[in-house]
């Protein structure tokens, strides 16, 4: 039952990303990447080997629809790999023991916000550095990362807060 739920959310997030969010233009090159919510909320009991493989598949699915083969896959595998390390910064060892799905309820609001911000920034920095590699100035890169991160973080926190309040 749990597995079905995750398969469903994987597909739903890819579809929302590709058909809705990639087509919304907030301002020029700003684009939120909500789909990383899948990696962010994946239970910590999932071994990091498996979460990296899932992240690779997730990134590649988004890549195929947006003609950016490899870019999202790279950024997703990176955050899946760093996830156990990042979450240690914000959660006590007690909370981390037997931690299931990572959400507002399981690790607390302030820890969750910090964790989402860190994961989103790592993902966006990796993604935009690869995407902007050959052209664009430092400030161009900086503002793309800043604005897109803000939108992604707000979307993820909005959805998670809504889920909690239900």
């Amino acid at each position: 039952m749990q597995v079905l739920k995750y398969i469903f959310s994987f597909i739903l997030l890819v579809l929302i990303q590709v058909f809705v969010l990639n087509n919304i233009q907030f301002s020029g090159y700003v684009n939120p990447y909500l789909y990383i919510l899948f990696i962010i909320t994946l239970p910590m009991s999932v071994k990091v080997e498996w979460s990296m493989l899932l992240a690779f598949l997730l990134g590649l699915s988004v890549d195929i629809f947006s003609n950016t083969i490899g870019m999202h896959a790279f950024a997703c595998v990176l955050i899946a790999f760093l996830r156990p390390i990042i979450i240690k910064f914000f959660c006590s060892a007690d909370t981390l023991k037997n931690l299931g799905e990572v959400n507002v309820r399981s690790i607390g609001t302030s820890s969750f916000v910090k964790y989402v911000v860190a994961m989103t920034l790592v993902h966006h920095i990796a993604l935009f550095i690869i995407d902007t590699l050959s052209f664009g100035s430092f400030w161009f890169l900086f503002f793309r990362i800043l604005y897109s991160s803000i939108f992604t973080i707000l979307l993820i926190l909005g959805i998670e807060m809504f889920k909690k309040s239900r």
Partner: peptide, 8 residues
């Protein structure tokens, strides 16, 4: 996985 992504 990361090297594979970069090759792609």
């Amino acid at each position: 996985l990361e090297i594979l992504s970069l090759i792609l």
